[in-house]
């Protein structure tokens, strides 16, 4: 069995009396695409921020490539982040920079690459997500939501990371654009041979991009299996979520 690239072991996180994560155990191996399902407010984003080191767990461990990175700071944390890409739910593109400066942000700031070289590399990466050089000098506000997601994907993959996180990659997009984003995710993850962790509540997206699917409920992973088995999980919670029923053990987040 391949050694996992990322492991979350017994991760717990609370905000005051609100216990968001209650012992999450999950891992992903290189070249595999794991999708984590969960309803609104189930703690998916908190789990992802803990994995990225944007939050520190109250208990448990985050292991990246065999190293415990739970409490890493400074250069050790930067070394991990240099191998990780992240596509934020909102895109999180920097408004004050052009499209190419967004895509090449790490190259310009962390790697101190020459601007002309960084721009060339950004334009090459934009081509990989089906965006032409004509958008390179525009600001994020001047392009559509679907294009912003592609720019954010280009920013996530430009340094050829070993692990890519996708936070609700298709949220807010029409079904056709969402499917195009899913195709790009699959294509780029395969091309890089990277591990991918996506969190979503979009079942169409989950079915398309996942090798494996896990379900987060009340702060724990309650089911995990191959994507092909999601319709036969034998778990009432998963079954209700997959079929989008209001009736069942999961109470709607009203």
């Amino acid at each position: 069995m391949t050694k996992p690239l990322l492991e979350l072991i017994g991760v717990e996180k609370s905000f005051g009396p609100n216990h968001v994560l209650r012992g999450v155990d999950i891992d992903v191996a290189p070249g595999r695409s794991l999708v984590i399902l969960g309803g609104s407010g189930s703690g998916k984003s908190v789990m992802l921020k803990n994995a990225l080191g944007l939050m520190t767990p109250d208990a448990g461990k985050i292991v990246f490539d065999g190293e415990d990175v739970t409490h890493d700071q400074g250069k050790e944390r930067e070394a991990m982040r240099a191998r990780v890409g992240m596509l934020f739910q909102s895109g999180a593109l920097f408004d004050s920079l052009t499209v190419w400066e967004n895509v090449a942000f790490r190259l310009l700031n962390a790697d101190k690459m020459k601007r002309s070289d960084a721009k060339d590399q950004a334009i090459e990466t934009l081509k990989k997500v089906r965006l032409g050089a004509s958008v390179a000098d525009l600001r994020p506000a001047e392009i559509s939501g679907g294009m912003q997601k592609r720019v954010a994907l280009a920013r996530a993959i430009i340094t050829k990371p070993d692990l890519i996180f996708f936070d609700e990659p298709t949220t807010g997009l029409d079904p056709i654009t969402a499917d195009a984003i899913n195709d790009l995710i699959i294509e780029q993850v395969k091309a890089l041979g990277a591990a991918a962790v996506s969190i979503t509540h979009d079942m169409a997206s989950a079915r398309k991009v996942a090798d494996e699917i896990a379900m987060l409920y009340e702060g724990k992973i309650i089911w995990r299996g191959p994507a092909s088995e999601i319709d036969h999980s034998g778990n009432d919670h998963v079954d209700q979520f997959v079929h989008g029923r209001a009736d069942g053990p999961i109470q709607p987040a009203l």
Partner: peptide, 9 residues
């Protein structure tokens, strides 16, 4: 965007 800055080192 501030989280994005951190992830981009």
């Amino acid at each position: 965007q501030i989280d994005a800055l951190k992830t981009l080192s």
